[in-house]
């Protein structure tokens, strides 16, 4: 490609190779996907803009594919697309989470790759991706590597992406069984999560998978709670006792590591996790003490 294109402040990448070449030339460039996080910073003047590589129109990052029990999502798949019939039938909790993001305008622009790149503790797709043990394919001009999500997101807005690298796709297993994502915020639309919770079932393995969002530096798998519920559910009848539900909710709340901030107190967040975890479980299993 012509070198002049890369030297311009904004490179609108036409292909994955084009983007990777631009990032090789300028590894510190801002990677711009949907813009819904980056542009907020830019508009505030809190993110200096020197070089930008816009990846929103790279064909290789669009769309999804199914390979056996795995779903591969291009990093450029938007929240609106994840709410569509096809993706929501394979990973319902991801569609539910996408539905809670911002507004239609934001969901039309924001992408799953961008949610991962920002690595905010409040990222709405992250709990479900953690529970699914998603695997990221990360590419640079020199090669490709795969990284499990819990090794990718390492702290508050910190991830393992190196200069010159791009998230290419996100792979998740397609599980058999109902899923629920719940989120707490001051209203229904345009809300940044105060606490969120995802509960997935794997009926073939008689197991649940779960994850807490926004109540720690990174999403938290409440493993003790997961084990308790997996063992406590009557999988044949899809039933669970009130006692198990209570214990599950308490263990989920115990696993939270919330902080006080302008969106909510730590105590409120822990309480919210207790409510959300019980609510999600009750939506999936019928409460039955007989």
């Amino acid at each position: 490609m012509p070198a002049a294109l890369i030297l311009m402040p904004v490179t609108v990448a036409r292909s994955l190779d084009h983007a990777l070449a631009a990032l090789e030339e300028c590894p510190e460039a801002i990677i711009l996907a949907g813009g819904t996080d980056v542009m907020v910073q830019v508009n505030r003047g809190s993110m200096p803009v020197d070089q930008v590589v816009a990846i929103g129109r790279i064909p290789e990052l669009q769309g999804w594919s199914r390979e056996g029990d795995w779903l591969h999502l291009g990093a450029g798949v938007t929240y609106s697309e994840m709410m569509g019939e096809e993706i929501s039938s394979m990973v319902p909790a991801l569609a539910q989470a996408s539905r809670t993001v911002g507004s239609p305008q934001i969901r039309n622009a924001g992408t799953i790759g961008g949610n991962l790149g920002t690595s905010s503790p409040a990222g709405d797709t992250l709990p479900t991706l953690f529970a699914l043990e998603a695997v990221l394919t990360i590419r640079s001009s020199t090669g490709v590597r795969k990284l499990p999500i819990n090794q990718f997101i390492v702290g508050v807005k910190q991830n393992a992406l190196q200069p010159g690298e791009l998230i290419e796709k996100i792979s998740v297993p397609v599980l058999e069984g109902p899923q629920e994502f719940c989120k707490i915020g001051p209203r229904n639309a345009m809300v940044i999560s105060v606490a969120s919770f995802t509960l997935l079932t794997d009926v073939k393995e008689s197991q649940v998978r779960s994850c807490l969002g926004t109540v720690g530096p990174v999403p938290i798998r409440p493993t003790e709670a997961e084990n308790l519920l997996s063992n406590g559910v009557n999988w044949e009848k899809n039933k669970v006792s009130s006692e198990v539900l209570e214990a599950f909710a308490s263990l989920c709340a115990d696993a939270a590591q919330p902080i006080d901030d302008h969106r909510g107190s730590a105590a409120y967040r822990r309480h919210a996790i207790k409510i959300l975890s019980r609510r999600a479980a009750c939506r999936i299993f019928s409460e039955d003490n007989s």
Partner: peptide, 16 residues
């Protein structure tokens, strides 16, 4: 085909 917030679109990326 999509409505977006123009404040969150980098102008230089909206070509073509």
């Amino acid at each position: 085909e999509e409505v977006v917030c123009s404040c969150l679109v980098l102008a230089g990326s909206a070509t073509e």
